[in-house]
Nucleic acid binder design. Structure first.
Lengths: 135, 135
DNA sequence: GATTCATATACCTCAAAAGGAATATAGTCG
DNA sequence: CGACTATATTCCTTTTGAGGTATATGAATC
């Protein structure tokens, strides 16, 4: 993987934040919305950009598109994502994202990365946990 | 230093190559020209971009502008520059740049980072080493 | 099939920036 | 001061891409 391609992915704050929280585990778009406090359209676009360049992979689970980091990233990508994790520790915007992610953790534990909607919005209908986990 | 600002500097191949060779030591523009095989105007622009964002510092020595990495970079910059060095090792374009730099090494040893012209062009007038080193 | 939910994409606007040609600027030397 | 060297900057063109509005697409459910 060309190094400059990686940096082209990292040079946007939204994408940087996406990759930073993704290191903690897979997420669907509506969880990204809650964690990053960004609109769906914006996130979808950036996720598409990352997907097109091999920085994230996506799996559909029913209504939910679940994004994850590549399971076997090339070494230069691995190194840069590790570097990002180290550096983000001291930066407020990334810490805030993680705080929001922690607040979501119970919901994630219950439904997995595909859920029934952002934590900020009450579920319209209860979703059974089983279908979300079934693959 | 904001992380995304660093990546904005790294997301251009020319700038990436500049930073990569600069880790080996200070260089003037015409040495960059020789090492990176890129035109002066292009390099000046990218160096200006990097300078404006604090990624390089510059010193004038007579006719020569000598660029260097910051002597005390913030931790996130240090980490990313180290990461770049590690990753560039396996990439042909960066290795070629280093090869050209090694080929220039004797000229650098003689005149320092400010020189009398690119190695590809014979010097019009011999420059004494002393003025280039004097600061 | 209609409805609903999740999310991708089309269309549009605007801004940033890469790169080249031309030229300005700063310094040196005779 | 003029000539020369090194290099920064201006002007211009083109490209890329961020982000918003609107809408299309895919899946689930009844």
């Amino acid at each position: 993987m060309e190094l400059v391609k990686i940096y082209e992915c990292l040079c946007d704050l939204t994408r940087l934040r996406v990759l930073h929280v993704l290191a903690r585990g897979p997420l669907c778009v509506c969880h990204f919305q809650a964690v990053l406090a960004e609109p769906q359209v914006k996130l979808s676009k950036h996720l598409a950009y990352l997907r097109a360049r091999g920085l994230v992979s996506v799996t559909r689970r029913g209504n939910w598109m679940v994004y994850a980091l590549p399971s076997a990233p090339p070494p230069e990508l691995r190194a840069n994502l590790a570097c990002l994790q180290d550096c983000a520790r001291e930066q407020p915007i990334f810490r805030r994202d993680l705080a929001r992610l922690e607040r979501l953790a119970p919901a994630l534990a219950e439904t997995g990365p595909g859920c029934c909607g952002p934590a900020t919005r009450p579920p319209r209908r209860a979703r059974p946990a089983a279908p979300a986990r079934a693959r």
